[in-house]
Structure formats: C-alpha cells, structure tokens
C-alpha cells in the first residue's frame, strides 16, 4: 500500500534519512520506532512531502508521491496527524473538523461528525468549545478526528502518546484498534514501546535515518542485540 524505496532526506545541511526503505501493507498497523533525532518525524514528513526527499521514491497505491504538494498527498488518501497535535486553537471543535473535511472516498464508510463523536464522546460534549480550552488528551483526540474527516486510507500518527497521561493512551489503543477494524492502515511513529506493542502488527526501527530492524514484535523480543542497542531501558 505504502512503499518507501531508498529515501534520502536533508534538513538544511543535515542528512537525516539515509536510504530508508520499508512498506505498510493494506490494513496493517506498522510502528516506526527509534530515539528522538533518529528521523521518525522526518520520515513521516517525507511521506507527506512536507520535507522533500532528495532521492528515492515514495509510492502509495501505485502512485509516486515525490514532487506532489502536501495537499495532493492528503487528497490521495493519506491522513497526517502531526507531532504536538497542531490543532487550530482559535477554532471550535466543529470548525477544526470542517478544515479536515474532504469528499467521500470509494471503499470507505465516510466519516462525519456523528461517527467521530461516537468514537470520541469527550469531543461531542465540547463541540462548540475552542481548541485552546481542551486538555492535551482531548487535543490529541481532536487532531486524530480532524484527520479522519478527510476519509484517509492510511493514517500517519506522529508520536501521539507524547506527553499524554497513561490512562488516555489506553483509550488511544482502543481507538487505533477500532480504526484498524474499519480497514485503515496505520503508520505509527512512537517512542513508547509499551504502546506500540499493544497496537502494531510490525515494528520498523530506525537509527540515524537508517533502518535497523523490520519484523514482528515477537521477532523483536527474540532479537536481544537490537533490543538492547536501540530500545531497552
């Protein structure tokens, strides 16, 4: 469904991604793991074309994304939930959802306010509140809901658990699993291994922009070398 082939990305003079390749299959939840600065956010932004890869290809359902504008990538069916949520704090919840709204897409039950409020009941109660009145957890929910309004086939979640209380992260686990049931594919960039393990089918570990591991969590559990080098506490 999504395939990155030998991506190289720079940020200013810094070489962030180094020949990175991996893929996300239909209906699959893949977790992108690695420490801060490893290049997770740059990977996600390179898919969205918010960062332009200097070489390599990003392929989504047979279509190359490089040289597309971010809004074209979104229109193709990739939903982006950014790091630090980035909701529109001056807009109400309903207005935030309006910004994310895109036409329905074939093969996907179209998202609307009602369906989203069923999943995120907290948002429903506060639908006319401005974004700035929401707590961090609610803002994260809104950020996901806003992106779902675009009826994406693939969801890119960039560090959704960062700075969120464990009890809210547990709700997020339920939400992501529900979305998976709906047939959505998810690429989850995370540092929290506990969280990633609960939702993802597969883990991709990167370090200094290079892929170090690609496999299931059971394989990861068995691979002490990798675990100790990049993840262990």
């Amino acid at each position: 469904m999504l395939k990155l082939s030998e991506i190289n990305s720079h940020y200013g003079k810094a070489h962030i991604l180094n020949n990175l390749s991996f893929c996300v299959g239909p209906g699959e939840v893949v977790s992108l793991l690695g420490r801060n600065g490893a290049g997770k956010t740059t990977t996600v932004k390179s898919i969205m074309q918010l960062v332009r890869p200097s070489s390599g290809d990003v392929d989504f359902e047979g279509q190359s994304l490089v040289r597309s504008a971010p809004h074209q990538v979104a229109k193709l069916g990739i939903g982006y939930v950014p790091e630090e949520r980035r909701i529109f704090t001056d807009l109400t919840i309903l207005e935030n959802l309006e910004v994310g709204k895109q036409p329905a897409r074939k093969g996907i039950a179209p998202w609307n306010q009602q369906r989203l409020f069923d999943i995120f009941p907290n948002l429903s109660e506060r639908r006319n509140n401005r974004g700035k009145a929401l707590s961090g957890g609610e803002q994260q929910m809104l950020s996901i809901a806003r992106t779902l309004m675009g009826n994406p086939r693939l969801l890119l979640l960039d560090e959704p658990s960062e700075g969120i209380a464990p009890v809210i992260v547990e709700q997020m686990v339920t939400t992501i699993l529900k979305l998976k049931e709906e047939g959505l594919s998810v690429l989850l960039s995370e540092q929290n291994l506990h969280f990633a393990r609960l939702v993802a089918d597969r883990a991709v570990i990167i370090e200094s922009g290079e892929k170090k591991f690609d496999g299931t969590f059971d394989e990861l559990e068995a691979n002490t070398e990798i675990r100790d080098a990049y993840l262990s506490v």
Binding site: M48, L50, A69, P70, H71, V73, A74, K75, Y80, P82, R86, F88, T89, D90, L91, E95, N96, V99, G100, Q102, R146, T147, G150
Partner: peptide
C-alpha cells in the same frame, strides 16, 4: 482562520 494559525497544517489536511 485555520491558515492564519498554521498554514502548513491546513495544507497537510488536503487544502491547496
């Protein structure tokens, strides 16, 4: 109004 606050994000949500 959304673009006033964060134009990059508006783009990433599919708005040209």
């Amino acid at each position: 109004r959304a673009a006033t606050q964060d134009r990059e994000m508006v783009g990433a949500l599919g708005v040209n």
